[in-house]
Design a binder for these strands. Structure first.
Lengths: 276, 276
DNA sequence: CCTCGCAAG
DNA sequence: CTTGAGAGG
C-alpha cells in the first residue's frame, strides 16, 4: 500500500530501470551505494544473472521489498524488482517458454490509497528483458518470436485498461535520435525496421507512451554503450532501455533522466519521476 | 655452444625452474622484468598454458633462445625452455600419450666447449610437468601411470650415462621437511607414500640428486603455496618443484635458493647455480 | 582461490 | 570488451 500525502493529495514516485549486467558485478561497482541515495521508490533490474542461492545479504539492502525472477540457466538473464513500498502481488512470466524459463518478465502490483474515505486503486510495475538478437540469425528469430508473444500481452493490458509501467531493456532503438551511429547500424539487430515498427505499434496503435520522451522529446541521450572500443568515452551509445507506460501515466511524468555520473554496467539507469 | 672461461677454465650456469601457472598471467605479474635481472642462463617453465599462436612478442624477450612445447588442449599444461645459450638440439615428449599430447616434457641439449683444443661435451636440461592427482581417483591413476612411464626414462638416462638436469613441477613432496602441514596431508595426492617412494627410487636407487638439497640440506623451504586461504601469507607451502640431476652434477651445485620476493604464480622460481 | 576457454551479450 | 560458468589446478 502506498499512502498519498493527505495535504497535497499527491505523491511523487521515482522509478528506475537498469540492466545491471550481473547484479554481482554492479554491486562491486557501487550500485547499491548509489541506489541508497538515488531517491528511487521502485527499481526494475534486468540481466541480474544470479539465482536465489547466489542472492546474498550484500544484494539485499535494508528498507526494500525485493523480488527476484531468475533464469533456469545459471549466470544468465533474469529480472528483479526492488521497492520501498510493499507489493500487493507479484507475477512471474507470461506463459511462453523463453520468457518464463529465462526469467525475462516479472510484474509487481501496488495498491494506492487516496485516503481513509476512498477505495484507492492499483497499478503494475513490470521488469522486462527482451532477448538480444545480435549473436546471429537464430537469436534474431527468438527475439522476433518474443516480440510477437509480447505484443499479445501489451494488447491485452490495454483491453483490460490496466495501469502499467513496463520498465526494461527492450534491445530496440526507436528512432534516429536514439542512436549515435544511425547509418552504420541499419542492418544490425536492435535497429532493424521490423523491430522499430514493433515499438511504433506499441506507441501509435496501442497508445502506450515512451515516458522518457514525454519529458525529453528532443534530447539525444543513450542508455547503453558497447564495451568494445571507446564507446562509453566517446558517448557512442544506443537508447534501448525504456519505461513503456499505459496512457494514464502520460500526464504524470514529472521528470526524466539517464544517470551517467557513475558506471555500474554497460547500461545506465533510466530514472523517471511520476506524480501519483 | 657454451664457451668456458679461458682463464679460469670454469663457468657458472644459473638454471631456474618455475611453474608459471599461465605464462600470460605470469607476464602480467612482471615475470619477464624479474627474469631480465635474474642472472638466469636457462629457464625451465611448466604450465605455460598457451599455444604457439598465443605466444606473442611480450613473451619473447630479446637475447633469449626459446622453445615452447604445448598441449593439444587450449589453455592447458605445456612446458618451455628459455636459454641465453643456443640449444644444440630439442626433443619434445617421451613417447607416451599423456606426456606427448599435453606438452609435459621437453629437453634441450647444450654443447660445452672446453677450449679450442678440446672435443667438449654435451648435457641436457629438461622441463617436466608431472600431472596433478588432486582432482580425484582418475587423476591419481593417470599420475601414477605417468610416474611409471617416467621411471623407465630416468633409468635409461642413467644406463646411457647421460648428463641431465630435469627441472620441473613434480607435484610430489619428498620428506616431512618439504611441507608445512605434514600430518594433515598424509592422505593427499602429492604426499602419498608411493609417490614419495618414487622419488626415493630416483635418488637412492638410480643415483639422481635433488640439487636444492645439496646446497640446503636442512632448510624448510617451499616452492608452492595454495591459492586458497592465507597459504602464501602464512607460508603454508609444499616443496614440489625440483632440479633432479644426474650424479655428475652433484659436486657442481654452487648455490641454490627459492625466490619469494615477488609472486608471479602459485609456484616460486627454484634457482640453482652450477659450476660447468 | 586462480587461470583459462567458452557462451552470451 | 565484459560477465559468469566450468574445468582444472
Amino acid at each position: 500500500m502506498i499512502a498519498k500525502d493527505l495535504n497535497t493529495g499527491a505523491k511523487m514516485l521515482r522509478v528506475v530501470s537498469i540492466n545491471v549486467n550481473g547484479l554481482r558485478s554492479a554491486t562491486a561497482k557501487g550500485f547499491f551505494q548509489w541506489l541508497e541515495n538515488s531517491g528511487a521508490d521502485i527499481v526494475c533490474m534486468q540481466e541480474t544473472r544470479l539465482q536465489p542461492h547466489q542472492w546474498l545479504e550484500e544484494h539485499k539492502p535494508a528498507g526494500w521489498h525485493m523480488h527476484l525472477c531468475h533464469a533456469e540457466k545459471p549466470g544468465y538473464s533474469g529480472t528483479a524488482i526492488y521497492s520501498r513500498h510493499p507489493f500487493s502481488s507479484i507475477n512471474n512470466g507470461l506463459g511462453f517458454d523463453i520468457c518464463d524459463t529465462q526469467g525475462r518478465f516479472t510484474a509487481a502490483e501496488f495498491y494506492i490509497s487516496d485516503g481513509p474515505d476512498s477505495e484507492g486503486k492499483t497499478f503494475v510495475v513490470a521488469s522486462l528483458y527482451l532477448p538480444s538478437g545480435s549473436s546471429g540469425d537464430e537469436a534474431q528469430a527468438r527475439k522476433d518470436l518474443f516480440l510477437q508473444e509480447m505484443l499479445v500481452h501489451f494488447r491485452q493490458w490495454r483491453e483490460q485498461g490496466k495501469s502499467i509501467i513496463v520498465c526494461g531493456d527492450y534491445n530496440i532503438v526507436h528512432k534516429e535520435i536514439d542512436i549515435k551511429n544511425w547509418k552504420g547500424n541499419q542492418k544490425n539487430s536492435g535497429v532493424l525496421p521490423h523491430e522499430r515498427a514493433w515499438l511504433d505499434t506499441l506507441y501509435d496503435e496501442l497508445g502506450y507512451v515512451d515516458a522518457f520522451r514525454v519529458h525529453r522529446p528532443d534530447t539525444q541521450e543513450y542508455s547503453w554503450w558497447s564495451n568494445r572500443g571507446q564507446a562509453w568515452a566517446n558517448n557512442v551509445g544506443w537508447r534501448i532501455d525504456y519505461h513503456v507506460v499505459s496512457p494514464d501515466w502520460r500526464n504524470r511524468v514529472a521528470n526524466a533522466f539517464i544517470y551517467r555520473d557513475e558506471r555500474f554496467s554497460d547500461h545506465a539507469p533510466v530514472v523517471i519521476d511520476y506524480v501519483l
